[in-house]
Write a protein that binds this DNA or RNA. Structure first.
Lengths: 210, 210
DNA sequence: AATTATAGTTACCACGCGGTTACGCGTCAA
DNA sequence: TTGACGCGTAACCGCGTGGTAACTATAATT
């Protein structure tokens, strides 16, 4: 059952480079040393390949979310946190910066994440579902995450109190903006990396309790 | 010579909805009540239609930029500003908010701007040129603009001093983020409009000199 | 009035598309 | 040994693609 996964991988690669409409079934088959007809032994249609990729990415995203929440339990949550490594372990600003930055850098560098993001970026206007998925994944979820993170920091007295949503916005929006540059122009990766790091540091210095 | 412009308009519309590869020459010709072959009386190829749209949009963008700079002359600029309506006329925070917001709202609502932005969003990974154009247009230029605006406000003592680039970043990045939502999910336009307005107001209250 | 340019038309081209069919060939269980 | 099955192939289908050629109606120019 290896071929099926190879097809999905190759399809994701090409969809993320040339878009769905810009990629043909032969385009997908050729690099695998396979005939186009063989694809139909594993999938019903081109659209189904796309759908399965989306589905799989959604599954992985939810796993990623679950992992996030085990690493960070909210104060008002009723589930008792186990050996969480979230707010409780963040003491210094450098800790925060390093943790946030390594997290950001992962989603920027992980090839699978990058390809899914490119593909979704190009497909976001194709349907209501894809549009909502994009917003949910790259905006709402992340704003919620950082909002809760900051809320925890405030409760611990590590961050100045303020409008949580707005702080999350001012923190995360620049990150997503640099992500866009990074994706479009890989040659500027280093520049973006430094800009994000600088942003995190300045943000920290502006919001920390002295 | 009206047909040529109608073709460009229709092509932009369809490219911005279905992408370049997802749009055929017949798709463009049909709504105009014209045969596909007639398109070739005005254009050499499908690619040329796309290129001309890009070219025209670049022209309009530069006009837009020129207009911006007549409305706002920098302090260290050697060219004497005419009847500028820039910083010099901004007195209260409400003025700033209203001016910035109406500017943002225009680029969000103007159908031509919206379509170009959608088209570029879908095409940004197709070539180095398009990628750079996207970054320049929707990131660098805007950051520069707001940076200069804030610099002027600081010189006038209307805004707390701080890292100009970073202030522009924290101000503009959220705007571009909401622009994305607005574009993807037009049903959330009102929500985004309010969120942007709120952001501008909070940003103002945090950075104004009391 | 004759000519020329323009902007359309219909009919067509070769090709590549997504998708289908008929078949071959190993593998493995009965 | 047999036969079903999984996974591949080559060849093909109908259609739509970008693009072209020949023709025509109209309107402006000379």
């Amino acid at each position: 059952m290896k071929t099926k996964d190879l097809v999905l991988e190759e399809a994701l690669k090409q969809f993320s480079e040339k878009g769905y409409a810009g990629t043909s079934m032969s385009d997908i088959a050729k690099p695998l040393g396979i005939s186009k007809a063989a694809l139909y032994k594993h999938f019903e249609s081109k659209q189904q390949i796309f759908d399965i990729i989306i589905e799989e990415s959604e599954k992985r995203f939810k796993e990623f979310l679950a992992e996030l929440s085990t690493h960070f339990s909210r104060g008002d949550s009723d589930k008792t946190a186990g050996a969480g490594s979230g707010v409780s372990e963040i003491a210094t600003g450098d800790d925060l910066c390093e943790r946030v930055f390594s997290f950001v850098k992962f989603s920027l560098s992980d090839p699978y994440s990058v390809r899914v993001r490119h593909m979704l970026t190009m497909s976001q206007f194709q349907s209501k579902e894809l549009a909502e998925m994009y917003s949910k994944r790259y905006v709402e979820t992340m704003l919620d995450y950082y909002g809760e993170l900051f809320e925890g920091l405030m409760e611990k007295g590590l961050m100045k109190r303020g409008d949580i949503r707005h702080l999350a916005l001012m923190f995360y929006a620049p990150v997503i903006m640099y992500t866009g540059i990074w994706d479009r122009e890989p040659g500027r990766a280093k520049e973006c990396e430094e800009a994000i790091r600088k942003h995190v540091l300045i943000f920290y210095s502006l919001t920390k309790t002295k």
